[in-house]
Computed example of a mutant assay.
Amino acid sequence: MASHLDRDAVEWATEEERRARQKKYDQVARDYYDLTPPILEQGCMIAYEKLYAKMAGLKKGMRVLDLGCGVGGPARHVERGTAMTKKAGLDHPITFVKGDYMKLPFPDESFDAAYSIEALCYAPNPILAYREIVRVLKPGEPFTLHDFAMTEKFDESNPEHRKVRNWIELGNGMTKLPWVPTMRGALKEAGFELIREEDVFKMWMPFRNIVQNIYRLRYYLGLEPKESSSLFDMMWYCPKGCATGAAMGIFTPMYLFVCEKPAKK
């Protein structure tokens, strides 16, 4: 249970408070990933990554853009991600670049494919990010997106729905969780052709306490630093919100869109 955070304040956060967080979206996400990479790395699902690569149409020899690449994303972890890649013998074909989704530091039509896994949900305005991806992709090439999202059952006017949404946002360092219909419309408006979309995951309710309890035990055994206590409190919202939202049918952590930039006529 969260002990140091004002849970009521988070549950019933106002739109004004959420907008204030959105103005500093980059700092919110950076602070979150300064704390959580070891947890996220240890929970990596290799089998799903292989399946995802197949769905994304990734092939040897392609120049591929990974938007929000985990330990290579936030500034403090660029060196760490580079070191891990070198250790795996992949430092020649892989390069880490610090950037902003809304202002990608790459020339037009410079990539053969692009994908994002649980990353673009941190963008305060997804359509701007989608437009940038269209810009840097070559014509006729794929973009695959798997993200946290509020489903079509989410009702903004329902206070319980908003409460769960607020839990998930705080517990995952987000400023504005995307809504599936908005994502669909934004992808089309940005210029993508939608090939496939589906919810590929249903959250298992007992999961909500597993990760937190493992790391809380490590903390009490002295295997985690004292500063981790605040992380445990924040992460209470993550599994609690995700599991509750999934049980209500208003949230999914794995909504998939497979898109393509139209080929030039």
Rank of each mutant, 00 (worst) to 15 (best):
E189R: 15
K23R: 15
R208H: 12
K226M: 02
P206I: 10
R135N: 04
S230I: 08
K202N: 00
M248A: 12
H92Q: 08
D34A: 06
A113H: 07
D112T: 05
S228K: 15
D112V: 03
K265P: 15
N158H: 10
S157V: 03
P181V: 00
M248P: 07
N209L: 06
V164P: 04
Y220T: 12
G245T: 09
W12E: 12
K24A: 01
T14S: 13
E49L: 09
G140P: 11
E16K: 12
S116H: 05
W236I: 09
F143T: 06
A75D: 11
E189C: 03
I168L: 02
E109V: 02
L177Q: 01
Y220F: 15
G245Q: 07
K23Y: 12
C69N: 00
V258T: 14
V258M: 14
K188E: 06
Q22R: 13
G68T: 09
H77W: 15
L40Y: 12
V136M: 11
G72S: 00
E224A: 11
T252H: 03
G171V: 02
K54P: 00
E132R: 03
E224V: 05
A13Q: 14
V78R: 09
I94A: 01
M62Y: 10
F201I: 09
R131I: 04
F106S: 08
M183P: 00
K103P: 03
Y115D: 08
Y52W: 10
G61D: 04
K176Y: 08
G61E: 05
C259A: 13
L256K: 14
I210V: 10
N125W: 03
F154A: 01
E41P: 07
D6C: 13
K86D: 07
D66I: 10
T175W: 06
C44L: 14
N166F: 02
Q22H: 04
W179G: 00
M203R: 01
K24G: 01
D199T: 00
D66P: 04
L170T: 08
R162D: 07
F148T: 06
L51C: 01
Y237C: 01
R196S: 00
V64I: 14
D147G: 07
R196W: 11
V211S: 10
F154T: 05
E193F: 02
R135Y: 08
I133Q: 04
H161Q: 08
N172A: 05
L194W: 13
I250Q: 07
N166W: 02
K23A: 10
L145N: 06
L5E: 01
V180I: 15
K163L: 01
M45K: 14
L65A: 05
Y255T: 09
G43I: 05
S230Y: 11
C242T: 07
G241E: 09
K261T: 00
D100K: 15
D26Q: 12
P93H: 13
D233K: 11
E132S: 03
P239D: 03
R218C: 15
Y52E: 02
N172Q: 05
M205N: 10
G89Y: 09
F192Q: 05
Q212A: 07
L90F: 11
I210F: 10
L104F: 13
C69H: 06
A263W: 09
A246N: 06
P239S: 12
R18F: 01
F251Q: 03
L90S: 04
K202L: 03
F192A: 06
K23W: 09
K163S: 06
